[in-house]
């Protein structure tokens, strides 16, 4: 069997006095889709940010595509994020000053691809997620749902080995949400990538191979689906 793309072992995190995550252990294999569910404030986003190396694990180990994130510096973690991870956050989190198209091209630009190629790839993905924008459209001109589509395009543009998505369809209507989810899962899984999906929508969770339930920062149980 292939080694897992993402492994968390006994990871904990506290913000000040709030313990957001305690002793979480979890792994996602290549081609697997795992959903993380649980009530508001139970630590789902925290878990995702730890997996992305945006937050640094205060204890325990996080490994992505063979690199142990807690053992390396900010630069190395940024490189892992840029090369192996696609990240869709709850509020889109686009770069406000950059046109939407350049936002989507960003992972490729950072990696040193020529701007023309990066933008062409970005246009392709914007098309696939179904977002029609001009070359100079700014994120401030998008609706909440459109910003999520753009964020999804940005997460997919470089063909990541690990797709991390935090409520990626929360601001979309049911149909667009389903279409986006189809696209994200199909492209990533077809390329042998792994997906970790945070959601509190049961129909979204039902698309996963496995569901991990969180409660008060602790993994309550795991269920195999389908």
């Amino acid at each position: 069997m292939n080694p897992p793309t993402l492994t968390l072992s006994a990871v904990s995190h506290t913000y000040g006095r709030t313990q957001a995550l305690r002793d979480a252990t979890l792994s996602v294999a290549p081609g697997e889709v795992v959903a993380v569910t649980g009530p508001s404030g139970c630590g789902k986003s925290t878990l995702l940010l730890l997996a992305a190396g945006v937050l640094r694990a205060q204890s325990g180990r996080v490994t992505v595509a063979g690199t142990e994130l807690s053992g390396v510096d900010d630069t190395a973690r940024a490189l892992v994020r840029r090369r192996s991870i696609g990240l869709v956050l709850q509020f889109g989190q686009l770069v406000p000053d950059l046109p939407v198209r350049d936002n989507v091209a960003l992972p490729l630009l950072l990696e040193g691809h020529p701007a023309a190629d990066a933008r062409a790839a970005a246009d392709g993905w914007l098309d696939r997620v179904g977002l029609a924008v001009g070359p100079d459209t700014l994120p401030s001109e998008l609706s909440g749902g459109q910003a999520q589509l753009a964020a999804a395009a940005r997460a997919l543009v470089h063909g990541p080995a690990l797709l991390l998505a935090d409520e990626p369809t929360a601001s979309l209507d049911t149909r667009s949400g389903r279409a986006l989810l189809d696209l994200m899962l199909a492209t990533t899984v077809a390329a042998g990538g792994a997906v970790l999906l945070v959601t509190h929508d049961n129909t979204v969770a039902a698309r996963a191979d496995r569901e991990v339930r969180l409660r008060d920062g602790v993994i309550e149980h795991e269920v195999a689906l389908s």
Binding site: T75, A78, L87, L89, Q93, P96
Partner: peptide, 19 residues
């Protein structure tokens, strides 16, 4: 404030501290 948002977006996309 705006710069902080720009940096956060860049960081999430994988920009290193040097970038």
């Amino acid at each position: 404030a705006r710069r902080a948002a720009v940096h956060e977006g860049l960081r999430l996309s994988g920009a290193t501290p040097a970038d």
